[in-house]
């Protein structure tokens, strides 16, 4: 464990807490893409299958349970909670995310470390996480103005993988047999997808203005 990875995990946790806060405090999920939340639930379920087979550390296991439980709770809330689900932007959240799932599954079958069930699913979860934010970014552009909590949620979500890139660089230089190009390439793609969001987020922060994404 190194500081970059720890900061990355904490940033990821903060993004989830902000989203839970937004939904709980405002009893609304307007501006949040249910499809992105469903993709994240799938990412965690596919990646953390080793939760019961490989024990790495208490921290690792606890965080896996937290990520799986929170992502499922958010999906449940947006689908079933009688108050929250009314504020879901169903007509704006129209990204065909099933194509993302199919494409990532196909890629994982072609490119993975070892052609085993767990490795294919792990690669699938890495590829899917890289593109899971797309429905959310599309929804933000369509819904025009972005409320503060939603903007902060997306910002922290983007920042977490950027910390992981620093972690991979650090591990590359400090550990001998460290080769994890699948995560690195996907992580770079994932962070790059946030580039324009980060730019507009920075502009709105500098001008102290409302975050506006160009349509």
């Amino acid at each position: 464990m190194n500081i970059f990875r720890f900061l990355g995990d904490m940033t990821h946790l903060i993004s989830i807490l902000i989203l839970l806060l937004k939904i709980y405090a405002t009893k609304s999920c307007s501006g949040i893409s249910l499809k992105t939340q469903e993709l994240y639930a799938l990412v965690f379920l596919a990646r953390y299958l080793d939760l019961f087979t490989d024990f790495i550390s208490v921290y690792n296991s606890v965080m896996k349970v937290v990520f799986i439980a929170s992502s499922l709770a958010i999906v449940w809330c947006m689908r079933r909670h009688r108050v929250v689900r009314r504020s879901y932007d169903k007509e704006l959240d129209t990204f065909r995310h099933y194509f993302l799932v199919a494409a990532c599954l196909a890629l994982a079958l072609l490119v993975q470390e070892k052609f085993t069930f767990l490795e294919v699913l792990w690669a699938f979860s890495i590829y899917l996480e890289a593109v899971a934010i797309l429905p959310q970014l599309v929804l933000l552009q369509r819904s025009g103005n972005v409320d503060n909590l939603t903007g902060q949620y997306v910002f922290f979500l983007g920042a977490y993988r950027a910390f992981y890139i620093l972690n991979w660089i650090y591990r590359y230089f400090t550990e001998t047999h460290f080769s994890r190009w699948i995560s690195c390439v996907s992580g770079l793609v994932q962070t790059a997808l946030y580039a324009d969001f980060f730019y507009y987020y920075f502009i709105s922060w500098k001008n102290n203005s409302k975050l506006q994404l160009p349509a």
Binding site: D9, D50, I56, K64, W122, N167, E175, R180, S183
Partner: peptide, 10 residues
């Protein structure tokens, strides 16, 4: 160990 380095990350 069975888990390669890459799987010790979240």
């Amino acid at each position: 160990t069975g888990t390669s380095a890459v799987k010790d990350e979240l």
